[in-house]
Simulated assay, not measured.
Amino acid sequence: MRAGHAPGRISAGAYVLHSGLGKWSGDDQQAAGIHGMAAGAYPFLGKIPPRRFLRAVAAAEIATGAALLIPFVPALVGGTALTGFAGGLLGMYWRTPGMHKPGSIWPTQEGMAVSKDVWLLGIALGLVIDGLADCRNRR
Protein backbone atom coordinates (compact mmCIF):
# COMPACT_ATOMS: atom_id res chain seq x y z
CA MET A 1 0.00 0.00 0.00
CA ARG A 2 1.29 3.43 -0.88
CA ALA A 3 1.43 5.92 1.96
CA GLY A 4 -0.79 8.27 -0.04
CA HIS A 5 -3.50 5.59 -0.20
CA ALA A 6 -3.57 5.03 3.55
CA PRO A 7 -5.93 7.85 4.60
CA GLY A 8 -8.61 6.93 2.05
CA ARG A 9 -8.25 3.20 2.52
CA ILE A 10 -8.34 3.43 6.31
CA SER A 11 -11.29 5.83 6.50
CA ALA A 12 -13.37 4.05 3.86
CA GLY A 13 -12.31 0.56 4.98
CA ALA A 14 -13.11 1.18 8.64
CA TYR A 15 -16.46 2.75 7.74
CA VAL A 16 -17.53 -0.07 5.42
CA LEU A 17 -16.25 -2.82 7.76
CA HIS A 18 -18.11 -1.28 10.71
CA SER A 19 -21.28 -1.03 8.63
CA GLY A 20 -21.03 -4.70 7.64
CA LEU A 21 -20.38 -5.89 11.18
CA GLY A 22 -23.45 -3.96 12.35
CA LYS A 23 -25.61 -5.66 9.73
CA TRP A 24 -24.23 -9.15 10.33
CA SER A 25 -26.37 -9.70 13.43
CA GLY A 26 -29.23 -7.45 12.31
CA ASP A 27 -32.79 -8.23 13.33
CA ASP A 28 -35.87 -8.74 11.17
CA GLN A 29 -36.79 -5.05 11.31
CA GLN A 30 -33.36 -3.95 10.07
CA ALA A 31 -33.42 -6.65 7.37
CA ALA A 32 -36.86 -5.57 6.17
CA GLY A 33 -35.89 -1.89 6.08
CA ILE A 34 -32.63 -2.35 4.17
CA HIS A 35 -34.13 -4.96 1.86
CA GLY A 36 -37.17 -2.77 1.15
CA MET A 37 -35.06 0.23 0.22
CA ALA A 38 -32.75 -1.83 -1.99
CA ALA A 39 -35.62 -3.69 -3.67
CA GLY A 40 -37.35 -0.39 -4.35
CA ALA A 41 -34.34 0.77 -6.32
CA TYR A 42 -33.40 -2.62 -7.76
CA PRO A 43 -36.65 -4.64 -8.14
CA PHE A 44 -34.89 -7.95 -8.89
CA LEU A 45 -33.69 -7.96 -5.25
CA GLY A 46 -37.29 -8.35 -4.10
CA LYS A 47 -37.04 -12.10 -4.77
CA ILE A 48 -34.38 -12.53 -2.08
CA PRO A 49 -35.66 -13.05 1.49
CA PRO A 50 -34.82 -9.98 3.65
CA ARG A 51 -32.67 -11.84 6.22
CA ARG A 52 -30.63 -13.55 3.48
CA PHE A 53 -30.23 -10.22 1.69
CA LEU A 54 -29.02 -8.51 4.87
CA ARG A 55 -26.46 -11.27 5.49
CA ALA A 56 -25.20 -11.03 1.90
CA VAL A 57 -24.85 -7.25 2.15
CA ALA A 58 -23.08 -7.62 5.49
CA ALA A 59 -20.66 -10.20 4.08
CA ALA A 60 -19.90 -8.01 1.06
CA GLU A 61 -19.30 -4.97 3.28
CA ILE A 62 -17.04 -6.94 5.63
CA ALA A 63 -15.01 -8.29 2.71
CA THR A 64 -14.75 -4.86 1.08
CA GLY A 65 -13.76 -3.15 4.32
CA ALA A 66 -11.15 -5.81 5.06
CA ALA A 67 -9.73 -5.59 1.53
CA LEU A 68 -9.20 -1.87 2.00
CA LEU A 69 -7.64 -2.23 5.45
CA ILE A 70 -5.24 -5.09 4.64
CA PRO A 71 -2.08 -3.37 3.35
CA PHE A 72 -0.98 -6.10 0.93
CA VAL A 73 -4.27 -6.13 -0.99
CA PRO A 74 -3.53 -4.22 -4.22
CA ALA A 75 -5.14 -0.82 -4.72
CA LEU A 76 -6.86 -2.08 -7.86
CA VAL A 77 -8.57 -4.92 -5.96
CA GLY A 78 -9.66 -2.79 -3.02
CA GLY A 79 -10.70 0.06 -5.29
CA THR A 80 -12.73 -2.22 -7.54
CA ALA A 81 -14.59 -3.69 -4.56
CA LEU A 82 -15.29 -0.24 -3.17
CA THR A 83 -16.43 1.00 -6.60
CA GLY A 84 -19.07 -1.72 -6.69
CA PHE A 85 -20.25 -0.92 -3.17
CA ALA A 86 -20.35 2.85 -3.68
CA GLY A 87 -21.89 2.51 -7.12
CA GLY A 88 -24.70 0.40 -5.69
CA LEU A 89 -25.39 2.98 -2.98
CA LEU A 90 -25.38 5.89 -5.39
CA GLY A 91 -27.56 3.96 -7.83
CA MET A 92 -30.05 3.43 -5.03
CA TYR A 93 -29.89 7.15 -4.27
CA TRP A 94 -30.60 8.04 -7.89
CA ARG A 95 -33.37 5.47 -8.37
CA THR A 96 -35.28 6.16 -5.15
CA PRO A 97 -37.93 8.87 -5.51
CA GLY A 98 -37.61 11.72 -3.06
CA MET A 99 -33.89 11.33 -2.41
CA HIS A 100 -32.87 14.01 -4.89
CA LYS A 101 -34.54 17.10 -6.24
CA PRO A 102 -36.48 16.49 -9.47
CA GLY A 103 -34.24 16.90 -12.51
CA SER A 104 -31.19 17.47 -10.30
CA ILE A 105 -28.35 15.49 -8.74
CA TRP A 106 -28.66 17.50 -5.52
CA PRO A 107 -30.18 15.70 -2.54
CA THR A 108 -33.33 16.43 -0.66
CA GLN A 109 -33.22 16.22 3.13
CA GLU A 110 -34.24 12.54 2.86
CA GLY A 111 -31.38 11.78 0.46
CA MET A 112 -28.62 13.59 2.30
CA ALA A 113 -27.32 10.53 4.19
CA VAL A 114 -27.00 8.40 1.05
CA SER A 115 -25.75 11.17 -1.25
CA LYS A 116 -22.74 11.66 0.98
CA ASP A 117 -21.50 8.24 -0.12
CA VAL A 118 -20.13 9.94 -3.20
CA TRP A 119 -16.89 10.33 -1.22
CA LEU A 120 -16.59 6.52 -1.20
CA LEU A 121 -16.80 6.50 -4.98
CA GLY A 122 -14.10 9.19 -5.19
CA ILE A 123 -11.74 7.15 -3.00
CA ALA A 124 -12.56 4.01 -4.97
CA LEU A 125 -11.89 5.55 -8.37
CA GLY A 126 -8.62 7.05 -7.14
CA LEU A 127 -7.47 3.58 -6.05
CA VAL A 128 -8.58 2.00 -9.34
CA ILE A 129 -6.77 4.64 -11.40
CA ASP A 130 -3.58 4.23 -9.37
CA GLY A 131 -3.89 0.45 -9.54
CA LEU A 132 -4.28 0.51 -13.32
CA ALA A 133 -1.31 2.87 -13.64
CA ASP A 134 0.78 0.49 -11.51
CA CYS A 135 -0.20 -2.43 -13.75
CA ARG A 136 0.73 -0.46 -16.83
CA ASN A 137 4.08 0.65 -15.38
CA ARG A 138 5.03 -2.97 -14.58
CA ARG A 139 4.77 -3.98 -18.25
Rank of each mutant, 00 (worst) to 15 (best):
M1N: 02
R2D: 12
A3S: 08
G4M: 03
G4W: 05
H5C: 05
A6H: 05
P7Q: 02
R9D: 03
R9K: 09
I10R: 11
I10N: 02
A12P: 00
G13W: 03
G13F: 02
A14T: 09
Y15P: 00
L17V: 12
H18D: 01
S19Q: 08
G20I: 12
L21C: 10
W24M: 14
S25G: 08
G26D: 06
Q30C: 02
Q30A: 12
A31Q: 04
A32D: 05
A32Y: 03
G33W: 04
I34L: 15
I34A: 14
I34D: 12
H35G: 04
M37V: 08
A39I: 06
A41Y: 06
A41V: 11
Y42P: 00
L45D: 05
G46E: 01
K47S: 06
I48V: 15
P50S: 11
P50W: 13
R51Q: 15
R52D: 14
R52T: 15
R52I: 13
V57K: 00
A58H: 03
A59W: 06
A59D: 09
I62D: 09
I62W: 07
I62C: 14
I62H: 09
A63T: 13
A63I: 11
A66F: 09
A67D: 07
P71G: 06
F72L: 14
F72M: 12
V73R: 07
A75D: 04
A75T: 07
A75V: 03
L76Q: 02
L76C: 05
V77K: 02
V77Q: 04
G78N: 08
G79F: 06
F85D: 00
F85E: 01
A86S: 10
A86F: 02
L89Q: 12
L89P: 04
L90I: 14
G91A: 15
Y93I: 13
P97K: 14
P97G: 10
H100F: 03
H100I: 04
K101E: 14
P102Q: 10
P102L: 06
G103I: 07
W106N: 09
P107Q: 02
Q109M: 11
Q109P: 01
A113S: 13
V114E: 10
S115D: 00
K116A: 04
V118F: 13
G122S: 13
I129P: 03
D134S: 12
D134M: 10
D134P: 00
C135W: 07
R136G: 04
N137V: 07
R139E: 04
